[in-house]
Each structure stands twice: as C-alpha cells, then as structure tokens.
C-alpha cells in the first residue's frame, strides 16, 4: 500500500509549466552531438556561464551574446579518437574536461585557451582502460581503471591553470567500480557503485576503503549519482537504467536509499518512477543527470522526463519535437537550468 502511494501522479498543467524554453543553440556543423554541458568562463574580466557542446571530433564553447543568442567562441579539434563525454568539473573556470575513447574511455583531456596568446590548448590528464570518472570539488578527478590484473582507483588533483598538481590512489574493491558520487557536506567521503551492485565508501584523504554494502538484488546494475550524510545515515541517489517493472513500486528510474554505514543495512526511502503510460519494457531510460534534488533523463522514446527526487514525482515531460527526439539531458551548474540536446547538435536551454 505504501509503495502504491509513491507512484507519481502527473497533471497536464504541471508538465507544461515546469519547463520554459529560454533559448536555443544550433550548431551549423553537421557532426553528431555526443554531449553538452555548462562551464564558467572568464574573458576580459567578466565571468559568464557558457555552454559546451561536444561532437565526436570537436568540442565548442558558446557564450551568451544577447538574450536568446549564443555565439561560438572556441572550437577544439580532436584527433582520431572520438569524444565520448564532457566531464563536469565543479568550481572551476576556463577548463573543459573531456573523455575520449572507442567503446570505453581511453583518455581524459583538458581543453583550455592560453592566457598568453589566446591559442587553444589540449593536455592529457590520464590514459588507460577507464571504467568510470567523476569531477570532484577542489579541481580533483577520480577515475577507476583496469589493467590485466588489477583495478586502480585514482585521484588526480589539478592546479587552477589545469596542470596536474598531485595524484594518489584509493584502495580498490575487488569488483569494478562503475560510478562515483561525492558525499555532500562531507569533504573527505566518496562513494561508488560496482558491477556486483555494491556501494563502497572511501576516505578520499587517506585512500582507505571504509565499507562495502550490498544494494540488493531487486534492482541490478545500480548507478550512484549523488550522496549526502544526515543523522548518521548515508543517503544515496541510485538509478537503474535497466530496471524492470515490479508490482510493488512501478518502474523506478531513480531511488533514494538510506544506508547505515555502521551496520551496512539499508532501506529504500523514495522511488521516482517512470510516468504512467510510459512504463513497460520498451521505455527504460537511456541516461540521466542528477543535481540538487532534481533528476532528468532521456527515455528510449526520445522524451525527457524530470523528477523531484524528494517527492518521488515526475514533474515535467519534454516529448520529442518536430525536429526529432531528445538525446541528451544535462543540468547546468544547478537544477534551475536544463540543457536538452538533439543528435543534430541543437541544444535547448529550459528554465526549471
């Protein structure tokens, strides 16, 4: 009965009012868009929130020129290895971090503009068989990579100018780490999810692996997006890209799970399910992004869905437009701005 109460109720009015189209970016290059993101960029003494678009072979920076008008100011041309994703780096300025590779990430690069002569720069941060990467606060990157015999979980610390300042390793679990999340309000804590559906907790400063906890078998292949600690419990936002519909709680795209790190016991706090009418095997979600208490994801139908994770409600739906299906959904630096992208390079900015 409790689970049934958590199944979202969607109202037509909510769908229309929650997302307002603010502006649109249309890249004239016909390359296939692979990712979109937002980055703070300072030029001529003023700091602006800019948009980064990534195609397989080029990454472009767009700055706001006028209301509803964006100008492409820089384009970095990449080599033969395709760009896979943009890696957001919180609290940084004038730095774009990207991952390149074929099926998996093979290298991580930083893209910059030289302050001396305005030339475009690229620098290699890491190479390897990289399974997961996340940009952390204080210009740090965490990544998990596999060699033939072992897994390495590594922190790379960057200077303000994008140089590698320091690096150290975290104790790896036996199984491969698939995703990382910082623990909000706990500077030295990091969590990860693994291939066997466990949550691991590290002490970032000492590199210690503090705890490994089972997520449970009900929802395999969980991906962690965000975590915060409160009242002695660790709350983790998990997504289930391949979730199957269950009678007890619908088809949860996201779950908030409370873990007691002392006992490794856990309980589900909130389910954020696919909207009614969109449930069923044919519409698991493709990929999602979580910021603050909001989650956005592209469904295989080409619709973007937005949820309030604390309410467990789907609060907005963006159906595919006449120009085509949505392929990308990313929050800008906070959850008041949603970047919605199509494969042809069109990016729409929505106020949420």
């Amino acid at each position: 009965g409790v689970a049934e109460d958590l199944i979202p109720v969607l109202l037509d009015g909510v769908r229309e009012e929650s997302l307002q189209l603010v502006s649109k970016i249309k890249d004239s290059c016909s390359c296939c868009a692979v990712d979109v993101g937002a980055v703070w960029w300072e030029a001529a003494g003023s700091r602006e929130l800019c948009v980064v678009t990534a195609g397989e072979s080029a990454v472009s920076l767009w700055r706001p020129l006028a209301p509803d008008h964006w100008g492409k100011v820089h384009t970095w041309q990449l080599g033969e290895v395709p760009v896979i994703q943009i890696i957001p780096l919180p609290d940084t300025c004038n730095l774009v971090c990207i991952a390149l590779g074929d099926l998996e990430i093979g290298e991580i690069r930083l893209l910059q503009v030289s302050s001396e002569n305005d030339s475009l720069k690229q620098s290699l941060v890491k190479t390897g068989n990289i399974k997961a990467v996340l940009g952390l606060k204080d210009r740090r990157l965490v990544s998990s990579s596999r060699t033939a015999h072992e897994q390495q979980v590594e922190i790379t610390s960057l200077s303000e100018t994008g140089r590698i300042k320091d690096g150290w390793t975290l104790m790896p679990p036996e199984e491969t780490v698939l995703a990382f999340a910082e623990v909000e309000g706990m500077g030295d804590a990091l969590v990860g999810t693994t291939t066997v559906n466990s949550i691991v907790i590290w002490n970032l400063k000492t590199g210690q692996l503090l705890k490994k906890m089972r997520v449970g078998y009900s929802y395999p292949a969980s991906i962690c997006h965000q975590a915060y600690s409160d009242s002695g419990l660790l709350f983790v936002v998990l997504s289930h890209p391949h979730a199957k519909e269950s009678e007890s709680c619908g088809n949860p795209a996201f779950r908030v799970v409370a873990f007691n790190p002392r006992t490794a016991r856990s309980t589900g706090v909130m389910f954020s399910s696919l909207p009614p009418g969109l449930t069923g095997r044919q519409v698991p979600y493709l990929e999602g992004d979580v910021k603050d208490t909001s989650a956005a994801a592209v469904l295989t139908s080409g619709t973007i869905a937005v949820w309030d994770l604390l309410l467990g409600h789907c609060t907005a739906l963006l159906p595919p437009g006449p120009a085509g299906s949505w392929a990308l959904a990313r929050w800008a630096t906070n959850s008041t701005c949603l970047l919605a992208g199509q494969r042809d390079g069109t990016v729409c900015l929505y106020r949420y």
């Binding site: 002490n203 000492t206 692996l209 600690s229 009242s231 002695g232 419990l233 007691n260 006992t263």
Partner: peptide, 23 residues
C-alpha cells in the same frame, strides 16, 4: 525507517570507520 530496521546509528560513522579500517 526506524533504527531497528537499520541497526544502531552513529553520527560519527565516518570518523569511526576511518579509525577502524586498514590504512
């Protein structure tokens, strides 16, 4: 959820686990 579901809760879990875990 109640404490009985999750076992005894400690507000200092991070410091305690850091002190107990192998370096």
């Amino acid at each position: 959820c109640s404490e009985s579901d999750l076992g005894p809760i400690s507000l200092n879990w991070f410091e305690e686990l850091s002190a107990e875990a192998p370096p």
